[in-house]
């Protein structure tokens, strides 16, 4: 399978993803799944600047669901990114069995409570994560490959 990472990170394509995970996983394609960005040319140009060595593809949740199977089977090493846990759930709902999602940067904000330095969740986020886990999706928090991996039980109990 050639989706090498599913990641939730509100910064999308940025240094930690491109340098930190990129040097480890060597992806050739970043897929940003976000309904708003998929319709915004200037935002796409900015995010694409962050990954000069790879392709950057932008898709709505609906389009991404249609292509998910194809991305998983073709030979282009792909990192799939969403800005929110909600979009990741919408993307993988019913299709997530056997896949793993990585929680990266979700920073402090209103109604979010701190779980880890780089991870702050709302009540809805917690519910979405529980629903994904119930479908057989593995969830782990890890900002960088060299950092320790934190499993979902630990994340939800914080």
């Amino acid at each position: 399978m050639s989706v090498v990472l599913y990641r939730v990170d509100e910064r999308l394509i940025h240094g930690q993803v491109v340098i930190g995970w990129g040097h480890e996983l060597r992806p050739d394609r970043y897929v940003v799944v976000d309904d708003e960005i998929a319709g915004s040319a200037w935002e796409q140009e900015l995010y694409a600047l962050g990954a000069p060595e790879a392709d950057a593809v932008f898709a709505t949740v609906k389009d991404a669901r249609a292509h998910l199977d194809e991305w998983s089977r073709d030979h282009v090493r792909t990192v799939v990114l969403t800005r929110t846990i909600g979009s990741m759930r919408a993307l993988l709902d019913g299709l997530g069995q056997g896949r793993a999602i990585n929680l990266g940067g979700l920073h402090a904000g209103p109604e979010r409570t701190r779980v880890l330095d780089y991870l702050h969740l709302t009540a809805d986020d917690r519910e979405d994560l529980g629903a994904l886990a119930a479908q057989g999706v593995e969830v782990f928090a890890r900002d960088l490959p060299e950092a320790p991996s934190v499993d979902l039980d630990t994340v939800l109990s914080a």
């Binding site: 509100e10 940025h14 240094g15 962050g50």
Partner: peptide, 16 residues
């Protein structure tokens, strides 16, 4: 707000 969010990544990476 969205512009400010999107511009962070490339300006950090390019500068480094």
């Amino acid at each position: 707000r969205r512009f400010r969010t999107a511009v962070r990544g490339p300006l950090g990476g390019l500068g480094d």
